[in-house]
Design a protein around this nucleic acid. Structure first.
Length: 279
DNA sequence: ACACCCTCCTGGAGGC
DNA sequence: TGCCTCCAGGAGGGTG
């Protein structure tokens, strides 16, 4: 499931591959993945536009296009963006007969970008202003502006349990199930602690842990547990660096106590009952 | 304000 | 082996 580090890895690769490319053809095979506008308008509006840049906000991939349009992609669980070089002469437009490829973009250079998603949760948005879609997101955890004080302010405004709060994109943008568990483990804080009860020291630890966990995962090109791959079909390596996620019954890497798994808000949650005390 | 439930989807896992 | 049921999981919606 792509979270911030996976999306960042995808974005860095796409930027090099797609910047300067001009769209010559768009094929939508599963209309419901186009969140807005209509499928007809989506295809019509994209043709002829150039990719000026590729960026990210939270878990959204943002392609900035000429003529003041932005194409946003949210990959949700199993969505992938795949770059292929189909060449100038491909008679069928290079369209792969793959039942999970829902949108194909063709560029004048012969390159293609595919949106592929087995579980069909991912969505594409074509808008004039990216803020129409990402305007409600919380701060970027790796931006310089995300200080311990900013986190303190966010936490003190809520009484919710930490796990669902940190996964709420309106609070903080980009964390998902894996990296919340990893950050809470590194900070030695129980996932069911209530946000406003953290001591200043714990807030600082959590702030450091969130940034460490995300930065390391980006260095490792993301976590490949099942579906995630880069646009060039490479697996990430951060699964080797996971300390708690998916490790129930195995010893804590810090203290040796056995890792527990518990459902929190319907989400699998892993933690060390010894290092991460509920108090 | 917060917890909880449902929906969307499908492959993979587990039970028998 | 094979069929069946269950389930994860991000986000948005609704309800209590």
């Amino acid at each position: 499931m792509p979270e911030l580090p996976e999306v960042e890895t995808i974005v860095r690769l796409l930027r090099g591959q797609l910047a300067g490319q001009c769209l010559s053809r768009v094929e939508v095979r599963w209309p419901r993945c186009i969140a807005c506008p209509s499928v007809a308008e989506f295809g019509r509006e994209l043709l002829g536009r150039e990719v000026l840049d590729v960026g990210r906000r939270g878990k959204f991939v943002i392609l900035s296009l000429s003529g003041h349009k932005s194409l946003l992609v949210h990959l949700r669980m199993t969505g992938r963006l795949i770059v292929e070089d189909v060449g100038h002469l491909a008679a069928n437009g290079g369209v792969a007969p793959d039942p999970y490829t829902h949108v194909s973009f063709r560029f004048t250079s012969g390159k293609a970008l595919r949106f592929r998603d087995t579980r069909k949760f991912g969505r594409l948005y074509l808008v004039s202003e990216a803020a129409e879609i990402v305007g409600g997101l919380g701060p970027e955890p790796l931006s310089p502006g995300f200080t311990p004080q900013v986190l303190q302010d966010l936490l003190s405004r809520h009484r919710r349990r930490l796990k669902p709060l940190l996964m709420d994109q309106r609070m903080l943008a980009g964390l998902g199930n894996i990296y919340v568990d990893e950050a809470l483990w590194e900070a030695r804080i129980h996932p069911l602690r209530h946000a406003h009860t953290l001591s200043p020291e714990e807030v600082v630890r959590l702030h450091t842990a969130i940034r460490n966990v995300l930065a390391r995962a980006i260095r490792n090109q993301g976590t490949t547990l099942r579906d995630y791959r880069t646009p060039l079909d490479e697996a990430g390596e951060n699964q080797e660096a996971l300390a708690v996620y998916g490790r129930q019954g195995k010893p804590c890497l810090r203290c040796g106590e056995l890792i527990l798994r518990e459902a929190v808000g319907g989400r699998g949650t892993w933690y060390c009952p010894s290092c991460q005390r509920r108090e």
